[in-house]
Design a protein around this nucleic acid. Structure first.
Length: 644
RNA sequence: CGCGGAAUAGAGCAGUUCGGUAGCUCGUUGGGCUCAUAACCCAAAGGUCACAGGUUCAAAUCCUGUUUCCGCAACCA
């Protein structure tokens, strides 16, 4: 049976980050594993290049949209090539074949009655050119972005009859408990579906950068909208709707996604496939996210990790090992250099690398580097049996994407090797004139290393090839069958002297908070530019006096429930009634400390609703990286005193 | 009652699907070994499995409730 492994196609709106690398590493390892086992395997990755955002980004950069997409797409492809990702195809949604395939799929769904034309109704802000849902609007009318009033607009759209597939989807989840991996995520999806599915708008008329409508449906003003276009890549890559050349790989054996896009892959995608009468993928694997030293990565914190930077510092294979070993599949993981270095030193250097060095040293001294497995079974039946148990247990872990358990188990082999050396102490046997026993132990360890490196090959392809070279064999399907499946031992050979594979790392190799972009120090001149810009942005004094600033006295203050930042205040501005002001200062002031204190208030601001509460003014405050403080009059003034 | 995740040894985490002696790594302490990358091996100390109930012969695991923490969403007027 053939295997088909996919990553999501990555959106070309920014550079590859650590999450992209993580998904790709997992997929690459699974694909390499299947290939090693001799399965007919196809591994797909690529880029998602359509949509309004790309159109806009290209414009901002003053580039032709296609040229812009080409450029970013290439950065992904180049990075994967540099990382040695073994993809069979790198698909781009701007590929002709993909577009044709999507159009074909659209026709099939349309013919089946699963796609129909209707109106997409929503609150539209003309200046922002964006639709908002009712709950997003301020005061039920105003645009949350620009504050202008919105109109209810009907936009023509084609809809996919998602609602029709509700029951079929639920049945499928029930009949295939492993469809969503890890299973703990399945409930989320099931509950969402049970909550009812609304038909899905699958075309837009508000932009043009997308797959055109099929010619058979004469409706040029529409283009396909994200998910239909993007999800179909998994079959168009195999030739769906065009050559059909590789459709034998469908259905996919595993499709990897981040947990943020699980819903689309576990609901929309299977529904599309049902509509197309195609079988559903065997598994959707949803992995977690990476944090940095316990904190969420974000550009504003400057703690985003660039995979390129880490691999430059530590090596891409070490990074692959770390990411797949550190985190149980599906859970969030934390990247810290401390944890990374610990794993490299203790597992790669001490357990694996050092073990190889031990037998190179011994074989050199005892047998002029010659290693012969002839007496291994005679003296090491126990170790061989233990090793075979481990080797047989590994497949289940990989099939379930539990790479951390796979590697944990695999590492037992090195422990068996290190213990055997200790127990049999070949240096003692040599003194006792039992050379055959000493050499058997060395050969045992050589065999352990050979078999372990075959199984480690999917995760660390280059390094394990070096080990194999040292042990005079090649890692391929033939040696996999010979040494792992049939459990045979290495033939007589001469071991190569090889420098340590994993030098110990004593100090972190990257600055503690590496920035995503090596040229991020360009940030500094930006502040200067902003000052200069303010000089160009001078206002008349009259404009300033349009703002009514007043001294106010806080008469009431309370926490807004369920919000982390907001306090609800009543402020006396010398008017009939105190004003209600909602202020985002909860992190810095307790309600009690504010009562009966003076504040400065912008008094003629248009009221706004925050968390459903009216705010009739704004407090003046100064904020820097250390926090926020209110601006207050130096001496007490009457409530309502104007500031000017 | 917006959605979701988490709480297990000094630290970081497995184990929970399917109830059956609480485990791994690092660190600490003591010992051993010299083939090896200050590596390796053995041993020890260290846990009321967040809390409270319940089901059970038996609960980290299943059920109910509670607390705390972290994301997302919301939100800095």
């Amino acid at each position: 049976m053939s295997k088909y492994i996919t990553t999501p196609i990555y959106y070309v709106n920014g550079e590859a980050h650590i999450g992209h690398a993580y998904t790709t590493f997992i997929a690459d390892s699974v694909a390499r594993y299947e290939k090693l086992r001799g399965e007919d395997t196809y591994f797909l990755t690529g880029t998602d290049e359509h949509g309004q955002k790309i159109e806009e980004s290209a414009q901002k950069n003053g580039k032709d949209t296609q040229a812009f997409a080409d450029e970013i797409s290439a950065t992904f492809k180049n990075l994967w090539d540099e990382f040695g990702i073994s993809y069979d195809k790198f698909i781009r949604t701007t590929d002709d074949a993909h577009k044709k395939g999507v159009q074909r799929a659209f026709e099939v769904m349309y013919a089946k009655g699963d796609i129909y034309k209707d109106f997409y109704e929503g609150h539209y802000c003309v200046s922002c050119e964006t639709f908002f849902t009712e709950t997003q609007l301020v005061d039920g009318e105003f645009c949350p972005d620009c504050g202008r009033s919105t109109n209810v607009i009907k936009e023509e759209s084609y809809f996919f009859r998602l609602s029709k597939y509700e029951d079929a989807l639920l049945k499928h989840y029930e009949a295939n408990p492993d469809f969503i991996m890890p299973r703990s995520r399945a409930n989320e999806v099931i509950n969402f579906v049970k909550g009812g599915l609304r038909d899905l708008s699958v075309t837009r008329t508000s932009f043009t950068w997308g797959v055109k409508m099929p010619e058979s449906i004469k409706d040029d003003k529409h283009v396909m909208y994200v998910w239909l276009d993007a999800l179909l890549n998994y079959v168009t890559a195999l030739g769906y709707g065009t050559t059909e050349a590789n459709m034998r790989y469908w259905p996919a054996s595993v499709q990897l996604v981040g947990k943020d896009i699980l819903r689309f892959h576990a609901i929309y995608w299977p529904a599309f496939l049902m509509s197309l009468d195609l079988p559903l993928p065997k598994h959707i694997g949803a992995h977690g996210w990476w944090t940095r030293d316990g904190e969420k990565m974000s550009k504003s914190k400057g703690n985003v990790i660039s995979p390129k930077q880490v691999s430059d510092a530590y090596g891409v294979e070490n990074l692959r090992y770390f990411m797949l070993r550190e985190v149980p599949f599906g859970q969030d993981g934390d990247f810290s250099q401390r944890a990374f270095i610990d794993r490299i030193n203790s597992e790669l250097s001490n357990d694996l690398g050092n073990l190889l060095n031990r037998i190179i040293g011994m074989s050199g001294k005892y047998s002029d580097f010659e290693i012969d497995s002839v007496d291994v079974l005679k003296y090491h039946k126990k170790e061989i049996d233990a090793m075979n148990v481990v080797l047989d247990s590994l497949d289940a872990y990989m099939q379930n994407l539990q790479t951390h358990r796979y590697l944990e188990e695999l590492w037992r082999l090195f422990s068996i090797g290190n213990k055997a050396i200790e127990e049999h102490a070949p240096w003692v046997k040599m003194k006792e004139d039992k050379k055959d026993e000493a050499l058997a132990t060395v050969a045992l360890v050589a065999n352990i290393l050979a078999k372990a490196s075959i199984m480690l090959h999917p995760i660390m392809p280059k390094t394990t090839n070096i080990i194999a070279d040292t042990l005079n064999f090649k890692i391929d399907n033939a040696s996999y069958k010979e040494l792992v499946v049939n459990k045979n031992l290495l033939k007589l050979f001469n071991i190569k002297q090889t420098p340590p594979l994993f030098p110990r790392i004593e100090e972190p190799l990257m600055p503690e908070a590496p920035l995503a972009h090596p040229d991020a120090h360009k940030e500094a001149p930006k502040a200067v530019a902003q000052c200069a810009k303010e000089q160009d942005n001078l206002i008349e004094i009259g404009q300033f006096f349009q703002t009514s600033l007043k001294v106010g006295i806080v008469v009431e203050a309370e926490i807004v429930p369920k919000s982390s930042k907001l306090l609800k205040l009543k402020v006396d501005l010398g008017e009939e009634n105190p004003r209600q002001v909602v202020a985002g200062i909860r992190e810095f002031y307790t309600p009690e400390s504010l009562i009966n204190t003076h504040v400065c208030v912008v008094a003629n601001l248009k009221p706004a609703k925050l968390m459903g509460m009216l705010s009739e003014g704004m407090l003046l405050a100064a904020k820097d990286e250390e926090g926020l403080c209110l601006i207050r009059p130096e001496r007490p003034k009457k409530a309502g005193t104007p500031i000017g």
